[in-house]
Design a protein around this nucleic acid. Structure first.
Length: 274
DNA sequence: GCCCAGGGAATCG
DNA sequence: CGATTCCATGGG
């Protein structure tokens, strides 16, 4: 068993894995988490100021550090974010959230599945998708690469029971297999152009494009606006986010999203208190 | 049984 | 243009 310790000051596995940015980490009986980093099956256990990773195969420190974003200094980020009242509250509510840098193709398909759907069901569909097309790693399967899906058609996707999203997945797979969209170019293109590329996929609008760029490409300025963020913006940011937040608007978004969705901020009974 | 879910496309007016 | 409606499915 290979082991790797990552230094991640302030990191909370519970908050990070359950805040709605990823769908495959499962809490194990021993308090650790069972999931994947790209093709690697990983068990992650919280330790002081970091995370202990274990795997049956060699752990690539660069790959793991990239996924968990060792390179992003959150203490520096928080100094900036806490200038803002609402964001300060959201950080205090769940300070251990860290935005992950997940594989782009996996992120894209996961968020196509997410549309008009709830998180437990999203996870179920993704797990079935991996069972159908991914490489086995112990008792679970890795998320498949585009080439492993080249021959997939509507019949092959039927077992997922993903409903109207089926044809959207097929179009996304087609765009990546044909090279019409290239994952690497999405990391370097100006944000607006990267967005436009993704939105050529049938079933991908601005929200899913931004989720893909934020969670799947480390584009921290991408700012997905789901229903919760839209409520947050119209209630508390009528003039938009402050300029000094914009380069990291996507990370700010994750704190605001989680706070808006789970704190009861927009419930009637709490509304009067705030 | 019913309501609704990290949206987006199609179809209105 | 903006607003409304439909989309499949099943979790709570």
């Amino acid at each position: 068993m290979e082991t790797l310790i990552l230094q991640l000051p302030g990191f909370s596995a519970e908050e990070t894995f359950s805040c709605g940015q990823c769908f495959r980490w499962r809490k194990a009986a021993d308090g650790g988490y069972d999931g994947f980093v790209a093709a690697a099956r990983v068990w992650a256990t919280p330790v002081a100021q970091g995370l202990r990773l274990e795997s049956e195969r060699p752990l690539d420190p660069a790959l793991m550090g990239g996924y968990f974003c060792e390179d992003v200094d959150y203490s520096e980020l928080f100094r900036c974010f806490k200038e803002d009242e609402m964001l300060s509250r959201a950080i205090e509510y769940a300070p251990g959230i860290r935005v992950l840098r997940q594989p782009l193709f996996e992120t894209l398909l996961s968020f196509i599945i997410s549309q008009n759907n709830n998180i437990p069901r999203i996870s179920g569909i993704i797990e079935r998708f991996c069972d159908c097309f991914g490489a086995p790693c112990g008792d679970r399967c890795a998320f498949p690469q585009p080439y492993a899906l080249a021959a997939a058609d509507a019949d092959a996707l039927r077992p997922l029971r993903c409903g109207f999203r089926e044809r959207y997945l097929l179009d996304a797979i087609r765009c990546f297999c044909s090279g019409e969209i290239d994952g690497n170019s999405l990391r370097s293109l100006p944000l607006a152009q990267a967005r436009a590329q993704l939105m050529r996929i049938n079933g991908v609008g601005p929200k899913i494009a931004d989720c893909t760029l934020l969670f799947g490409a480390g584009r921290w300025d991408a700012f997905p606006q789901d229903v919760w963020i839209k409520r947050m913006m119209s209630e508390y940011y009528p003039n938009g986010l402050p300029d000094y937040i914009l380069p990291y608007a996507g990370i700010a978004q994750q704190y605001l999203f989680h706070y808006a969705r789970t704190s009861g901020l927009f419930c009637e009974k709490h509304k009067q208190l705030i």
